[in-house]
Simulated assay, not measured.
Amino acid sequence: MAEIPYLLRGVMPVSTDSSVLISSSKYLNNPRLREWLAMICLRKNGADMPPQAEMHEFIGILDSLRDYDAVEQMFTQERKVNPELDAWFSEGFVSTYTIDDFSQYAPGSLGGIFYEQMHSGNYEIQITPWREPKTQLDYYNLRSGQTHDFEHILCGGGFNFMGELVPYWYRLTNVPKFMKNPKLAAEVNLIQIFGSLRYTVRTMLHYPHVWPTCVNAIQRGMRVGQESDALFMKKLETVFHLPLGEAREALGVRGVVDVNTDREGAYWAERAPLQSILEPA
């Protein structure tokens, strides 16, 4: 035993007749996911592959891996023991707003801030093609897409690549807090956990000057998720008219610290030189 390196102790070689890689993990078994994960963790940023395009590819990979029947069963069982989630599904509220609908809201209100961000950044509200939800997972994903940009604002994450970590980690801590079944919470948070790897690993490897910003964004998102009510089930549309502070209070959003990470996000995306984040703001 003494001659076996400490870190190798306990390793049990496994034999197999398979001629290809096989494991007990469906994720490791998937060659597309292995290639995608290596790319999004190890690559440097470049204009030829925007970060949002990476997630478009991942969604297709995830679709091929999911056991949709099992997910539906978990949702159905969860609703039997989770009255808040059951009520949310039973109402089945879906928004039909357009960007122009937000022009009515005053500056500083939740709707007004959203309107200004959408225009200044030339964003689109519907980032994935619309389809009528046919399953519980469809509805969960639809509402997650409709509320994501507002989660940036409500949770204190700016509309930049470092700010993206805040709503990611709010979800990664808030959703498990309000779901009885940890497996279901993990299933609906796969996009968040895989997506966040892009920002953490790539930042450490290639953009270490903004690593403190990255860590701070994760911490801020976690704090909001841990301290707040079930924001992912709230009808945000009822508070579009309220000033941001009042909207947060009405929705039970707590622990927010607003931090401007525009400069760090631009540097991370290689849209600004290193000197831009070294100079005083």
Results as ranks from 00 to 15, higher is better:
Glu35Met: 06
Val224Tyr: 06
Asp100Lys: 04
Ser95Met: 07
Pro31Met: 11
Ser18Arg: 14
Gln146Ile: 03
Arg9Ala: 02
Glu246Met: 06
Leu190Phe: 06
Met55Phe: 15
Val215Ala: 11
Phe75Pro: 12
Arg34Tyr: 13
Lys235Met: 09
Ile61Leu: 06
Thr128Ala: 13
Arg66Lys: 04
Pro31Phe: 11
Ser276Ala: 10
Tyr267Ser: 10
Lys177Val: 03
Glu187Cys: 08
Ile59Asp: 13
Pro133Gln: 01
Ser23Met: 06
Tyr27Gly: 03
Val215Met: 10
Cys41Ser: 14
Gly225Val: 10
Tyr123Phe: 09
His241Arg: 07
Arg34Leu: 15
Arg143Gly: 00
Arg131Asn: 07
Gly46Val: 07
Glu72Trp: 05
Asp101Leu: 04
Pro280Tyr: 07
Gly111Cys: 00
Asn216Gly: 13
Ile22Thr: 14
Trp130Arg: 03
Glu246Ile: 01
Leu65Met: 10
Glu237Ile: 14
Ala106Glu: 12
Pro107Ile: 03
Val224Asp: 10
Glu57Lys: 08
Tyr207His: 12
Asp67Ala: 01
Asn30Asp: 08
Gln146Phe: 04
Pro51Arg: 03
Asn260Gly: 01
Thr16Asn: 04
Gln136Leu: 10
Arg220Tyr: 09
Val215Phe: 12
Leu110Ala: 03
His206Gln: 05
Ser90Gly: 11
Tyr6Gln: 12
Gly157Gln: 01
Arg248Gln: 02
Thr16Leu: 06
Tyr6Thr: 12
Leu7Tyr: 15
Glu264Tyr: 03
Gln77Glu: 12
His119Arg: 09
Gly92Arg: 08
Gln126Val: 02
Arg263Thr: 04
Trp169Val: 00
Ile40Arg: 07
His56Ser: 13
Leu231Ile: 12
Gln219Thr: 14
Gly225Arg: 09
Leu274Thr: 05
Ile59Gly: 03
Glu132Thr: 04
Gln146Gly: 00
Gly195His: 08
Arg32Asp: 15
Ser64Thr: 13
His56Asp: 13
Gly60Trp: 06
Ser196Asp: 05
Gly10Arg: 00
Val224Ile: 14
Glu249Cys: 02
Gly111Val: 00
Glu3Ser: 14
Phe75Asn: 10
Glu270His: 13
Ser24Phe: 01
His206Thr: 02
Cys214Val: 11
Glu124Tyr: 05
Glu270Arg: 14
Ile127Tyr: 02
Glu270Met: 13
Leu165Thr: 07
Met1Glu: 11
Ile4Ser: 02
Thr147Asn: 15
Ser64Arg: 06
Ala230Ser: 11
Arg254Met: 07
Gln52Val: 15
Glu237Gln: 15
Ala47Met: 14
Arg263Ala: 11
Ile125Asn: 01
Ile59Cys: 04
Arg220Ser: 11
Phe194Gln: 04
Arg32Met: 12
Lys234Asp: 09
Ala230Phe: 13
Glu78Cys: 05
Leu251Cys: 12
Leu110Trp: 01
Gln226Val: 08
Phe75Tyr: 15
Leu190Thr: 09
